[in-house]
Computed example of a mutant assay.
Amino acid sequence: MRTARLRRNLTVANIAERAGLSPGTVLRLEKGDPGVGMGTLVLVMWLLGLNERMMQLVDETQDLLGRTLESECRRKRARSPM
């Protein structure tokens, strides 16, 4: 987050003001504090123009691990009823 902000020549104060957050919250987000809410993360990513990356997180076609686990857990063959 910090790198994305700096590449856009924005200060912590700029992001905080635009998002309606305190500068401390933005700094905590950049440091990876787990106490910062998901809504805050999504809002700041949107402000930085990183919304496409957020969409990749929820795109089920991009979930390679999930697809691998799903295919491994599928039944290989059905049993005949008794």
Rank of each mutant, 00 (worst) to 15 (best):
M1C: 14
R2C: 00
R2Q: 01
T3V: 13
R5S: 15
L6K: 08
L6N: 04
L6Y: 05
R7A: 13
R8V: 06
L10T: 02
T11Y: 14
T11D: 05
V12D: 02
V12K: 08
V12F: 03
A16W: 02
E17A: 14
E17S: 15
R18L: 15
R18F: 12
R18K: 15
G20Q: 01
L21H: 02
L21T: 05
S22I: 07
G24M: 11
T25P: 07
T25Q: 10
T25E: 13
T25A: 15
L27V: 11
L27R: 15
L29Q: 02
L29A: 06
K31G: 03
K31H: 03
G32R: 07
D33Y: 04
P34L: 11
G35S: 12
G37I: 00
G39P: 02
V42L: 04
V42E: 01
V44T: 01
V44P: 06
W46N: 14
L47I: 05
L47D: 00
L48P: 12
L48Y: 10
L48A: 11
L50A: 08
L50I: 02
N51Y: 13
N51I: 14
N51V: 14
E52G: 01
M54C: 15
M54K: 10
M54P: 08
M55P: 01
M55F: 03
Q56H: 12
L57C: 14
L57N: 08
V58Q: 14
D59F: 08
D59L: 06
D59T: 07
D59G: 07
D59V: 07
E60M: 10
E60K: 13
E60T: 13
Q62N: 12
D63R: 10
D63C: 06
L65N: 11
L65V: 10
G66C: 01
R67P: 08
R67Y: 10
R67A: 15
T68W: 09
E70F: 15
S71L: 10
E72Q: 13
C73F: 13
C73T: 10
C73P: 00
C73I: 09
C73M: 15
R74E: 07
K76D: 07
A78M: 09
R79K: 05
S80C: 12
S80V: 14
S80Q: 14
M82H: 04
M82W: 06
M82N: 02
